[in-house]
Design a binder for these strands. Structure first.
Lengths: 282, 282
DNA sequence: CGATAGGTTGACCGACATCAACCGACGTGG
DNA sequence: CCACGTCGGTTGATGTCGGTCAACCTATCG
């Protein structure tokens, strides 16, 4: 290991060390904790431009969002909430990475989605009495916590929450489509393209990043066996699409990956591979 | 075919005839259109007890829900809304059946979910500027239409809407689990058990009903080929689990079907088949 | 009556799960 | 510091579930 021994593309990055508060790319700020929210208000927050949560407090720009507990941090494998917990707040992920998953009675877990900085967790319990899924930290994470009780006091918050909720629904629908209609290769390509784009949006490199989840979790999310995930990753590498070393990914040929993501599916989807335009299901 | 020729269990039912406003089971009322909402108010609506939409106007029980256009009806294959349409309202399905689906650029369609009377459509576009999915009528349907503009005037509606939205989210998560972790048999069993329970909730028979969707649509929803759906259905019949004739289903051994639905998955889920208690993922 | 759409059935085979062995990284304790 | 166990990841061999192709059946409708 120790990076860059075999592949010059990949720069060694410190993963899972305690001081690492960001995911992927370079830390965008130099300070101690660049992701600390200034005053319980998004106005001066550096994540503001891509943070979907910031739309909430954008409403109350004049005065800071009340009752916003900020800079709540959790370490690897800690839970933000678990199935059955009573909903108390919604959480804006500021840094790190989180997975949302279901637990079947037999112990098997089903990863439902991965969350990146700027995304909002806990919405799926909004009107209910209990969380129906668990959220576990994959990479030391820092949150803005907005207690449900305080939401009422944010005028106009509903529009924003509705939007976030429906965005999540739409995302899930795409996930369903991805899982049912595409073959393993397309699933992986899609997954990587999606990650890449989300990293880029956040100001990180879209071509060099590291995965915050293990193969098992990718497999669970995409409905593939670990071995398949591994194999496809190395196949992609052999074909010159990307470089991979454990969790570190370096996308070499994004266009081709994108093409694989869009078509290359279960045969009846194929046909017009001619189309070259950007596909981008997401 | 012509019903009951081979299987004594199944009673011939008139499908898709113009006067048939309900799905499955027997019509619960004798009149002309038993599903006509009385006065734009849920108070006297016969679907009230199971209608999740009724929670909305329950809030404003004293005076009827304002601006509620009711008894909007659509025929087979008509669209309630399409991908790209600007959201105008939310729709409570009063009778009939609807499918929600996505269209991939290559023309393939992905069924995302099926809706039954009492369920609410259009929530996934609430905070947004366009529908991201299409809703097509599978069986002549009748809706209560609640224009988005009028929602504000219903005090306390947000709690209800949040709840509906998160319920939908949770449902989708279960769908994802179903699709990724279970084998074809378990998927079908799950699908049927789910349908059965929803019918029962609505006062119809949970053991004898007919499907409002064709095999293709079931296949798309579950991520299976049509042929597989067909084969598994006949296998279930051969094993004495149910009787099937085209769209008509009569569940004979519900317990065993339920067991298949819960476990019987991809091997690593098996193990403790000993447990006999009710499984009910849904 | 023929045309068409939905559904069933059989034969075949390929993608992917499964099983098993192995490897490197990492943490712990002697 | 090394031995060792554990965990995550890779790779190969093998089996099989379910997708694909093709033919056929049945109901429905003009």
């Amino acid at each position: 290991m120790t990076a860059s021994s075999t592949t010059p593309y990949i720069v060694s990055t410190n993963r899972n060390t305690s001081d690492r508060l960001h995911i992927g790319g370079q830390p965008a700020g130099g300070g101690t904790n660049p992701f600390a929210t200034p005053a319980g208000c998004c106005k001066d927050c550096m994540s503001r431009d891509y943070c979907v949560g910031s739309q909430l407090s954008a409403l109350s720009d004049s005065q800071p969002l009340p009752l916003l507990r900020h800079n709540h941090t959790l370490g690897y494998r800690e839970h933000l909430f678990r199935e059955g917990d009573a909903p108390e707040a919604i959480y804006v992920l500021k840094s790190g990475a989180v997975k949302l998953y279901l637990m079947s009675e037999d112990g098997g877990e089903q990863v439902v989605s991965f969350y990146m900085p700027g995304e909002v967790l806990g919405l799926d319990a909004l009107g209910t009495d209990a969380h129906r899924s668990s959220a576990m930290v994959l990479e030391r994470a820092c949150f803005c916590v907005i207690p449900l009780a305080s939401l009422d006091r944010v005028p106009g918050c509903h529009q924003v929450l509705y939007k976030l909720l429906s965005m999540e629904l739409v995302r899930d629908h795409h996930t369903i489509e991805l899982i049912t209609k595409k073959d393993a290769e397309a699933k992986m390509a899609n997954f990587l393209v999606d990650l890449s784009q989300r990293f880029r949006t956040r100001g990180y490199s879209g071509s060099r990043f590291n995965l915050s989840m293990k193969r098992t979790e990718i497999g669970s999310y995409l409905g593939l066996a670990v071995e398949t995930v591994s194999r496809i990753l190395t196949r992609f590498q052999d074909e010159g699409l990307l470089q991979v070393q454990r969790r570190q990914i370096c996308i070499v040929n994004f266009a081709r990956l994108e093409k694989l993501a869009g078509y290359g599916a279960l045969h009846w989807q194929a046909q017009n591979t001619a189309k070259t335009g950007s596909v981008s299901l997401f």
